[in-house]
Structure formats: structure tokens, C-alpha cells
Simulated assay, not measured.
Amino acid sequence: MKKIVVIAFIFLSTLTQAQLTSKEEVAPELVEKREAQKKEITNNYLALKNNLLVSDSMAVVKSAALLQQSLKNFRFKKLNLEQMNEATTKRKEIINLVAEVEATKNINKQRKIFETLSAKFWDLAPKFKVTDNTLYFQVCPMTNAVWVSDSKEIKNPYYPKNMLTCGAVKASL
């Protein structure tokens, strides 16, 4: 009986050690993959914003499709159940808004949807932000429309012809 207990103990110790070694070897790879996913989401959002700046509705549609796909592929980590449910709900709302942007080719409708999308995106921006990147929450004081940028420089995606530089940085991450 004692031999069985000792053998079982040795087996479990070896198994635990193998799992620890396995996790140590895989972790940097997973961290790198996750950072790439976060960068993809942020870059796709910024591409969408930048396409609104140049008033290219077809490019906005393409950017929206890419953003939608990258959001669907992302999984939240290090959240308790309540936080996970909240983040997942917000992500789904953003995905639905992105789908609305993708469904229309009218630049004014795209911009209107982008207002709501940007506010919701900012709520989850800490989860999507790449470690070595700063994001700025900007607002147009004339309309209170918000957007996220990777630059302090104001380039208003809602009124690029009339009020390109109208806005202010409200917060940063």
C-alpha cells in the first residue's frame, strides 16, 4: 500500500513539474500572440477612424469588416465572472455597431454610428491597448462626439473638411 502511495506521489509530482515547465515555455508565446491581437484590434479601429477622416466610405466598410473579425477573435483574460460578462457584452455591442457601419455606404451614417462605437470602444480600450502604445480619448466640443486616437494631434473624423483640428484630448491611456 505504501508503495502505491509513493508511486502515485512521484507520478503526480512529475506531472505537476511537467505542467509547470510546459506553462513556462508556452507563456511568452501566448503573451506575444495576445499583444498581436490587441494591436490588430487597435490598428483596425484607427484605420476605420482614418478612413472617416478622408471620407472614403468604401475603405470604411473594409476597415469595419477587419475590426469586426479581430474583435470576434479576441478573448478577455484575468477578469472575474462579473467583469467577463460586462466586457463580453460591451464587445458584442461594439461588434454590432461595426456591423452597422459595414452595412452602409453613406459616410454620414457611418460617422453617426462611429460616435457611439467610439464611446464604447474607449470603455474597453484598456483591454485592447498594446503595452507600448498610448491612446488618446478626444472630443469635438461643438457636438460632444468622441473618438480614440494614437496621436495627441486633433484630426476630427466627424468634420474633416470644416473642422479638422476642432477638438481636445479628454483623457489618455
Rank of each mutant, 00 (worst) to 15 (best):
I107F: 04
R75Y: 14
S55G: 10
T89A: 12
F74H: 04
V5K: 07
K77V: 13
L52T: 04
D132W: 14
A36L: 10
V54S: 13
N80C: 03
K77R: 08
E24F: 14
Y136H: 01
L124W: 07
N133D: 14
K39I: 06
I95M: 08
L81R: 13
L79F: 09
N50V: 03
T42C: 02
F9E: 01
D56P: 11
T14Y: 03
K105L: 12
K62C: 01
K105V: 13
L48W: 03
A65E: 05
M84T: 11
S63L: 02
Q19N: 15
L97V: 03
V60T: 10
I113L: 10
I107L: 04
Q68E: 15
Y45H: 00
V130C: 03
V130F: 11
F128W: 04
I41R: 01
V60C: 13
T88E: 12
T89Q: 08
F74M: 00
K120A: 05
L67E: 01
A65P: 02
L15V: 08
S13L: 07
E29C: 12
E29T: 15
L124P: 07
F9R: 01
E102N: 06
L46S: 04
Y45F: 05
S63P: 07
K90P: 02
T16F: 15
V130Y: 09
E93I: 09
T88F: 06
F128S: 00
T16P: 07
K112I: 04
E24D: 14
M84I: 03
V5L: 11
E29A: 14
L52S: 02
Q17M: 14
A8N: 12
A87C: 06
